[in-house]
Amino acid sequence: MNDEHWQHQFREYGNSSFSDLLRRDSPHLFPSPAAARPPLEQPAAPELVPHGTTVLALRYRDGVIMAGDRQATAGYQVASRRIEKIFKADDLSGVGIAGAAGPAMEMAKLFQTELEHYEKVEGDNLSLDGKANKLGQMIRMNLQAAMMGLAVVPIFAGFDEKAGVGRLFKYDITGGRYEEKDYDAQGSGSKDARDSLKKLWKRDMGRDDALRVTLEALIDAADEDVGTGGPDLVRGIYPTVKTITRSGFGDVADDEVKRVCEAILADRARTGNGG
């Protein structure tokens, strides 16, 4: 009896996971599949739910670049033109979300809180592998909803302080985690983005080259996939691009993205390349 008491205390104290805490203390806030799940005989209608389309991550000399288009698509409709799909997870990592936008953003938020909570309680950061694993577990918890058409399949990328390199991970709907060496894309335009990256990506690219390759791939995805939004010159909406390096998680300014996008489009108009 007494043993049980101290063992409970030990477990309770030694737990620095925010999602465990949430499930225990405030289960109503926990994004559980049971809450998100419609009655079984009535299948979800994924075409009514906004979906994020294309996100990608690639390695370059200083770390990784993550980028995504800005469009959310519901069926054949544009649900939003300005959605953000790349989220800062902590100072040295980020999540790019694809799939059902609502659950995906909720997952990103929970993941951010999870990492920060751990960092504050333990006074230390999780390892990059630890973070990648945790995200995999969260995706697995969403499996039931995924089977109903509300899948969430993020890309996770970050700078591994121990190894001194950028690394990236992709996932499947069951939470399976696969480390990719050089680049990867996720979402409806991912195949086109990957094709593009396959031809353009090179080892040890500098920041400028890597940025150009990133945007080429996103423009290709927008070109070929109806769900993916391209650079919107009229409204001034450009893809989100983030860099993650030894010195942290950084934005690439809209002006710079705009300049590179315009250069790519001008080159294509001039040479007929990519037509």
Binding site: L21, D25, S26, L29, T113, H117, K120
Partner: peptide, 14 residues
């Protein structure tokens, strides 16, 4: 301290 972090993180999340 840990109870405080838990209180704050849950509140900020919800």
């Amino acid at each position: 301290r840990i109870a405080g972090i838990r209180h704050a993180d849950i509140k900020g999340y919800s």
